[in-house]
Simulated scan of single mutants.
Amino acid sequence: MNMINKNKINILVVDDEDSITSFIKMGLEAEGYNVYTASDGIGAMALARKLKPEIIILDIMMPGMDGYEVCDEIKKLMKTSIIMLTAKDEIDARVKGLNSGADDYMIKPFSFKELLARINARLRNIFPELNSLIPIGDFLIDNGAHEISFRDKTLKLSVTEYNLLKYLLINNGLVLSKASIIENVWCNDFNGEENIVEVYIRYLRDKLGDKEHKIIFTVRGVGYRMTI
């Protein structure tokens, strides 16, 4: 089985607070990743050039080069996924970060479990070439065969059902809005109403035997979350 080899994944954590970098480094190393840290933008740039990390966790407010500058420069140099760290009241900062090339953001304080879910989602989305077979809980995504198995049985899925289930799975643990699902699953082929998402979620639940909605969980007023 061709799975992601975590000890070949480099993650760079950039923050001027030692307590944050130590906390993240300890947790990610326990997960099997190679983790490096920097306390300022200039140090981050030097390490990024040397390591070419797959993931960069980047604070915005730092001495010297701030997170925006670092993000912009790194995105020009290499293929990587950047998760920016922001404070609760920095709404404009989060928007600016995403506009500067960041792939995701997290609001301080955050849980390590959520950070790990976001890292895994970014790896699956940005670097699909890292693995052709992706095991996620009781599921196995086979990118080569365009199939998904559940508890060792291959599911009979239409193209849309496959794309929807795969999108839910690679973002396991994250709440996905109907708008984001339509954008990523239907892309430019969508001309209908948002309730088409509900229809296909129901199809998937039927095929998974998810009568109590414990696998695909509805977050009322927001969207759906895979909980495996």
Rank of each mutant, 00 (worst) to 15 (best):
V159H: 12
G43H: 04
D103P: 05
D103H: 07
P63R: 00
A93P: 06
D16W: 04
M45L: 15
M78I: 08
T218V: 13
I182D: 06
N163Q: 05
V70F: 01
K211L: 11
T86E: 10
Y162D: 04
E147T: 03
I56P: 06
I141N: 00
L169Y: 05
G67L: 00
E147K: 03
G41F: 03
I20W: 13
C187T: 15
I55R: 05
D16A: 06
G173C: 07
L58E: 02
V219F: 09
N171R: 10
I201C: 14
K156Y: 11
F127A: 04
G209C: 04
R49E: 15
V35N: 03
L165Q: 06
N10K: 04
L123Y: 03
I181N: 13
Y105T: 09
F190P: 11
G101F: 08
F110V: 11
G27P: 12
P109S: 08
D59A: 02
I215V: 07
S158C: 01
R49G: 13
K207A: 11
F112Y: 14
L85G: 04
A179W: 11
M3R: 10
T86K: 11
K108I: 07
I55G: 06
L77A: 12
L51Q: 07
A102P: 10
R205Y: 14
W186G: 12
G144Q: 00
I107R: 09
L168R: 06
P63V: 01
E193V: 13
F150T: 00
D16S: 04
R205W: 13
Y68I: 05
L85E: 05
P135I: 00
S19P: 12
K75H: 03
P128H: 03
E17V: 10
K79A: 12
I60E: 02
G144C: 00
L208F: 07
H213Y: 06
H213E: 09
I83T: 08
R202E: 15
I4L: 00
E90Y: 08
M65L: 06
I119G: 03
V95H: 10
L157F: 02
D66Q: 02
S158R: 02
Y200K: 15
L155G: 02
I136P: 03
I141L: 00
A179R: 14
K76S: 07
R94G: 10
N191T: 13
E129C: 02
K108Y: 07
A117R: 12
T218A: 13
K76Y: 06
I215M: 05
I170A: 07
A117G: 11
I228F: 15
A48R: 06
E212Q: 11
N171Q: 09
D66R: 01
R122P: 05
M3S: 11
L164A: 07
T37F: 05
S19G: 11
K75Y: 04
E17G: 08
E194A: 15
G32V: 03
I57A: 02
L51A: 06
E114V: 13
K214T: 09
N5P: 01
S81I: 04
L130C: 04
A117C: 14
F190S: 10
L133A: 05
A93C: 10
P109L: 09
G41S: 03
E183L: 12
V70T: 01
G221K: 04
M226I: 15
L168D: 06
I9L: 02
Y203N: 15
M78V: 07
K178L: 08
G173W: 05
S39F: 14
I141R: 00
R124Q: 09
M45V: 14
